[in-house]
Amino acid sequence: MQAAADGVVVGAMVGLAALGLTLVWAVERFPNIAQGDTLTLAAYLTFGLSVGAQLPIVPAAVLAVGGTTLAVQAAYQTAFRPLRTSPRVTLLVASIGVALVIRAIVSLVWGTRLQSYDLPVRRAISLGLFHVSLVDIVILVTVLGLVGAVYWILYRSRAGIEMRAVADVPDLARVTGIDTRRVLRFTWLLSGFVTAVAGVLLGAKIGLTPLLGWNLLLAAFAATVLGSVGHPLGAIAGGFVLGLAMELSTVFISPTFKEAIAFVILAAVLLFRPRGLLAGR
């Protein structure tokens, strides 16, 4: 039971990171490598505002999310938008560049030592069969709330419907009068916001190093592909499947292999459902 609970928490974090990835991937058709370092940036901004500028943690986190969202938008405007008509691989490489720039700035400003928010460490809360910490509960509630919000935006709001239209058939979307540029701007805004929230939570859970987000990127990629690229619910579901599989596997075999298990599952899913679990409309 404890392993399952841990799996859900790990899955939630991976899923949230994957959600931001999949949104941009769907519309822009390239995986944004800078995603991992965006997570790191959000965590460090929170750290800087709460520990450095002595703000309470909640306003610091809100400001950090805002700041990171703006930074992502700035990266989009300067690095990605000018390459709009280039081959997708160019954008992919550009995103690696953005990732390195963010990481270098973070290292320069905050140093490379391990840091952490000033949060009290408490004994976990016991819920009968298993125990969870307060941070875990905050993570789960935020992830569920965020997924609900993203789902609503994508399927109920005009901006979301336009986004899906551009993702499906860009040319047709343009012909029908959708302002593609506005849609793209909105996509990057949404993706930046989701990623920033994930980064703040990740910092609270793990502690801060400049490689914080980078380390999670591979798992986020796996979750994205597992749940079908461009499918927001799929990204979250992929995250949960990976997290649960990794943690539950440790009950039976050595934890040394838990990362390998995640990729065995990914390989198996791709063999039998090459487009991911939730694909197939």
Partner: peptide, 21 residues
Amino acid sequence: MFTQATNRIALLACAALAFAG
């Protein structure tokens, strides 16, 4: 929201991840 092209990009991304380091 899924095309053949994204598949290829996914492969490239994995390669990029491996080599960016």
